[in-house]
């Protein structure tokens, strides 16, 4: 066991994948000599050569499209999209090609492509560098969508994503790149299983990616008030591990979901609907969502007003518990609903 940052844990995961399977190739902008703008690929081109770790011309659609051709040829490409907001030029190649080729060819052509995407806000960045586009991809049949929240999961899940015969969108919580944690390279878990991070009895709080740490903080704060919060890290957004969430909600009867992405049509909506469908009679209150707003991601000095934080999550917990919450003010003041 070693202490690694999340970024370094991804780096060691990539190194292991490159060493274990010579069909693994890395494609991205600035991933070679520079080692990536977040240094996730640091040293890999030096170690594995320019054919295995390829600096790509600046075109995201081109990167994914070329990865498709490599996958046709039997390679396992791992693509880096430099920032979340730059994935859109590749949207067609991802949703119309990568996602559909296995289906289109009745299983003849496999697309074991991993698309790494640093995502989410909280780093004071300019526009297009703080987005959470995961719902677009979770909505697309044929893709798997996962995200990690700890160095251990970053390492393990990235290797699992690369080994998976399906295409995987791998969302990396960029504001947690420098979080340190123990990493055991031999650790394994079910790739698409959620993790109960904190056990609790009163309310289930579901988070993923960058907000898992915030959710843990919220659980600690709630326990100071005598509320026992169970925190679940979803890990996989497609498929969703509804079994794990269902088991928790059957116990607590209350569900709060938090993510940075906008609320409308987001993962929270999907989870709320699915859990309501499965656990209707066990729910004591409507599921509560604590999310980014249905606005574009704001400028850096306004992002604290956009991102779900400890207090907003606790407010959501209060709402799920039927305790006084900000929502009551809205109702009593006769404001817009």
């Amino acid at each position: 066991m070693t202490q690694l940052t999340l970024a370094k844990a991804l780096n060691t995961g990539l190194r292991r994948a490159l060493a274990d399977d010579d069909r693994v190739v890395l494609l991205g902008e600035d991933i070679g000599q520079l080692g990536g703008v977040f240094r996730v690929t640091d040293g890999l081109q030096q170690e594995f050569g320019r054919e295995r770790v390829m600096d790509m011309p600046l075109a995201e659609s081109g990167i994914i499209g070329m990865a498709i051709g490599l996958a046709y040829r039997g390679f396992r490409p791992v693509c880096e999209i430099q920032f979340d907001g730059f994935i859109y030029p590749a949207f067609d190649q991802i949703v119309a090609q990568v996602a559909k080729l296995h289906y289109r060819t009745r299983g003849a052509v496999r697309m074991p492509i991993t698309i790494r995407v640093p995502f989410g806000g909280g780093i004071g960045a300019v526009e297009h560098h703080s987005e959470s586009p995961e719902a677009y991809f979770a909505h697309t049949a044929g893709l798997r969508v996962v995200t990690c929240s700890t160095p251990q999961d970053a390492h393990t899940m990235l290797r699992q994503a690369i080994a998976c015969d399906d295409p995987v969108l791998f969302f990396e919580p960029k504001r947690r790149y420098w979080t340190k944690g123990e990493v055991d390279e031999s650790f394994e878990h079910a790739f698409d299983r959620a993790r109960v991070v904190v056990e609790g009895a009163d309310v289930t709080l579901v988070a993923y990616g960058p907000l898992v740490a915030t959710a843990i903080d919220a659980a600690v704060a709630a326990s100071d008030e005598g509320v026992s919060v169970e925190v679940i890290d979803l890990r996989s957004l497609s498929p969703l591990d509804l079994d794990t969430v269902e088991a928790s909600v059957r116990k607590t009867g209350r569900l709060v979901i938090t993510h940075e992405a906008a609320q409308f049509g987001g993962l929270g909506a999907e989870l709320a609907a699915s859990i309501t469908d499965r656990c209707f009679v066990h729910l004591e209150a409507a599921p509560a969502r604590v999310t980014g707003f249905d606005t574009p991601y704001p400028s850096a000095r306004a992002e604290e007003h956009f991102l779900p934080d400890l207090d907003r999550i606790l407010d959501g917990v209060d709402r799920a518990l039927g305790r006084p919450s900000a929502r009551d003010l809205l109702l009593t003041s006769g404001g817009a609903r």
Partner: peptide
């Protein structure tokens, strides 16, 4: 099956296949 005749199944999205060809060629 593309591998039976070494021809990918036809692409309907205009131009998307040209990138696949480059990736295959590099492979």
């Amino acid at each position: 099956n593309p591998y039976d005749v070494n021809m990918a199944t036809p692409q309907i999205v205009i131009g998307a296949q040209t990138l696949h060809a480059v990736g295959y060629a590099v492979g």
